[in-house]
Design a protein around this nucleic acid. Structure first.
Lengths: 200, 200
DNA sequence: CCGCCGCTCTCCCTTAAGATAGAGACTGTC
DNA sequence: GACAGTCTCTATCTTAAGGGAGAGCGGCGG
């Protein structure tokens, strides 16, 4: 089953998959909600899932689908190799990860791997996972603050929205700057975006 | 001819196009340089071009292709509907613009329109073009400064890199804030990114 | 039970950022 | 030649941001 918000991409994947004698596309979905409903109806061997979709994003779909079927075989697909979300998906139980600009062969072998319940680890992700271990991770609260910082909010504004004092907002921002190794909030946003911690 | 860095997307478009009795894919390219070389060799009726590609981006390709053949028929394709670059492409002479998440029918009719030398104007772009008229545009120098601001550089740092004084850098930043209707530099980056003025 | 961690708050201090106002030099156009 | 726009620089002032240090409180795991 394919879940992607671009009809073009679905067509491309479908064409590739249906040419294979051992594969067949049984269903397609264009957004997150549809993907969940569709999975439940069709129970496909493998779900190829775009990380960024309207209504409900990939992370939420992975969560829900694994609730429905804990043995679900999910292959995550994304355009951006920086996306932090993939780690969240993989740790939740997605079986594999793939970049959209991967060559045909790699895509097909990834689908085969996942269908046999073998994890598919792209080399780029494996490398990033190692890098990630070394770097300090942000707490949930810090991510909340970071989100607002990225929107250009001031500390005072952030404090008001999160119902904390400006001093506390500053403390969080400071922690963010330290963890992301940035000098200013604007640089922090640049770094966070590059790492896929936030989506603008 | 198709130019896109994702094999999947090329496959999808190729599948769609080749199903049509009046269309045929004669060539494909995976990056900017390849696209130009490929265009020169094949001289296709229509060039479907992704705006964001490795090596040379869509804007540069449009420029070069129109130098080779001023009557070239180019259909721009992009994932992001905010991209400011489309206006640059269209004003340079691209014939049409399309979002990647467009339904099959729209994609095909856009290709047909461009092949007949009719401009294809998506409703979203038309609307944006009007909005854009009302808003002040940034000067080249301001765009240079904005680029550095988006990287998180300080005014002092920006001044050093552009070989101007910090005061001048401030003047430019101030102008950017005014034109983008932002209160802080971080908000300016957020706005600029949303409008597609910069790519992080 | 105690220690670690995350969240909250406080105070002080330094520096950077933004607001305001004015001005000279260089383009190109009408 | 006058004019508009851009880029450059100057100065002063206010406010926001960032650095450093400390401390109380709640949860969670050894």
């Amino acid at each position: 089953m394919l879940a992607d918000d671009h009809p073009v991409v679905r067509d491309g994947l479908a064409a590739m998959v249906n040419q294979q004698p051992d594969m067949e596309v049984v269903a397609e979905a264009g957004d997150g909600d549809e993907a969940i409903a569709c999975y439940e109806r069709n129970r496909p061997d493998v779900l190829v899932l775009d990380l960024r979709m309207p209504k409900r994003d990939g992370v939420a779909v992975v969560q829900r689908v694994l609730e429905i079927n804990p043995k679900a075989r999910i292959l995550i697909m994304t355009t951006y190799d920086g996306d932090e979300d993939i780690f969240q998906c993989l740790s939740q139980g997605a079986k594999g990860y793939l970049l959209k600009d991967a060559p045909r062969q790699e895509i097909l072998s990834a689908i085969r791997a996942v269908s046999e319940d073998r994890p598919y680890t792209s080399t780029t992700v494996a490398a990033k996972a190692l890098q990630r271990m070394a770097k300090p991770s942000l707490t949930q609260r810090e991510l909340d603050v970071l989100q607002l910082v990225a929107q250009g909010r001031s500390n005072k504004d952030i404090a008001r929205r999160l119902s904390i004092t400006e001093g506390t907002a500053k403390t969080h921002v400071k922690a963010i700057l330290t963890k992301l190794d940035a000098i200013s909030r604007t640089e922090a946003v640049a770094v966070a975006h590059k790492r896929g911690l936030i989506h603008l």
